[in-house]
């Protein structure tokens, strides 16, 4: 995760250099030789040719770091004498345990609920009761949340089905029977003969 974060920061900051290198590679290909690039990129600036947009990511980074440092030192100088005390996280009168912390499932729950039409989440509850007859006091609860793999169900599966269908159709034509192939050749010869006449 940390490596991915560092990589995205690297590609963000040096996107101009990376884009410049890539565009040089593309430009060296004979197909794209005559095509003009839509943007110009160098280490400090990323600019569209018709002046539609320009962005300098190193400038943004340097500005952000310098303004943050300025704010930090200014606040530090002004509030030097204030004390910082360590305390407990606010627990609303109960004892906080790691189980109360938000999880990735909990974090993504609201956006999944908003897009439930597309993501189609499913919930399965399994409840074990203290007494199966009375079914009042629960002994254990088990909740299973599941989300469909969107790419699989909307892209790969339909594609696979289509390929399978086409294969079935092709299989009917190309059945491996030599007599049928001879029939095809015969039919094509007849068709060609009719065409010539």
């Amino acid at each position: 995760m940390a490596a991915l974060a560092v990589l995205s920061l690297f590609f963000g900051l040096f996107s101009g250099t990376v884009a410049h290198l890539l565009s040089e590679v593309v430009h060296s290909l004979p197909v794209f030789n005559s095509t003009e690039a839509a943007f110009t990129a160098n280490a400090s600036l990323f600019k569209f040719n018709d002046n539609f947009a320009s962005v300098s990511l190193p400038l943004i980074f340097v500005s952000l770091v310098s303004v943050t440092a300025a704010v930090f030192f200014l606040v530090h100088i002004l509030t030097k004498s204030r004390k910082v005390r360590l305390g407990c996280t606010w627990d609303c009168g109960t004892h906080l345990t790691p189980r109360m912390e938000i999880t990735a499932t909990g974090f993504s729950r609201s956006i999944i609920t908003v897009f439930r039409g597309i993501l189609q989440p499913t919930q399965q509850y399994q409840i074990e009761y203290m007494d199966a007859e009375i079914r009042y006091f629960t002994k254990a609860n088990r909740v299973r949340l599941e989300i469909k793999d969107m790419y699989s169900s909307y892209f790969y599966s339909p594609m696979q089905d289509l390929v399978a269908k086409i294969s079935e159709y092709v299989k009917q034509i190309q059945g491996g029977n030599i007599n049928i192939y001879v029939l095809y050749i015969f039919m094509i010869l007849i068709a060609l003969l009719l065409l010539v006449i």
Binding site: S63, L64, V67, T68, A70, V71, F72, V75, R82, K83, V84, R85, L86, G87, C88, T89, W90
Partner: peptide, 26 residues
């Protein structure tokens, strides 16, 4: 005022206010 910071707080908690304020200034 003096501050009370949670003992579980990391550098993200401590530096976020400066970054957020700096972004609004920018």
């Amino acid at each position: 005022k003096d501050e009370v910071i949670s003992q579980d707080a990391s550098w993200v908690f401590k530096f976020a206010p400066y970054i957020i304020f700096a972004v609004t200034i920018m």
